[in-house]
Amino acid sequence: MGGGFDFAVLIRNAPFLWGGMVLTLQLTALAVTGGLALGLVLAVLRLSRIPFAPALVAGYVNFLRSMPLILAIFWFYTLIPKLTGQSVSSFYSVLIAFILFEAAYYSEIIRAGISSVRRGQIAAALALGLSNAQAMRYVVLPQAIRNMIPVLLTQSIVMLQDTSLVYVVGLRDFLTTADIVAGRDSRPVELYMFVALTFLVVCFSASRLVNRLRRRYAL
């Protein structure tokens, strides 16, 4: 043991750490995809004139956004088995919590994106004889998506970081595997430095990407 750094510990444990990274990336990808899909539905419902739909969605969004994510994770971990009478794997209970939680945030971003398109644009599209659906598809959504891409990506980076909370239900994400190795091999400094650097690289590249997209699509 003794002093100095021993970065070989990373190489020795690379497969184990990689396993954690895979779980983190899987969770992020599935939660972002599911959250976006549900968020789009919620946003459209909130902007619709379907009776009670906007109020219900607003209630859902406000409720989930007022809740700490870790509470949502605990909640679904204990709630789903109670409701369904079946045990659900930690992975799926966490995934459901993430999707429902992220959808609340995404729906607000998407709603803001659609609302940011000037009403006159819809009038101009309709005046040309386009149907409501065509106006949405060719005129409103392309502009709305440009406006929301940077915020959606930022929210997804936050999501990636938030996956480290899954240790509370016993899942081994990237941070948790690193933590296990750190304890077992008594190399906390090396491991935590490695984790910090990895998150830095991933998040930095993602925000560079956001900036590039923002510049390219600046209107």
Partner: peptide, 21 residues
């Protein structure tokens, strides 16, 4: 059929409303 009718009437707006994308 409003869309069909509107397609036959041109309209020009104060703020142009060209599609910026």
């Amino acid at each position: 059929q409003l869309p069909r009718l509107r397609a036959r009437i041109g309209m020009v707006f104060q703020n142009f409303e060209l599609f910026p994308h």
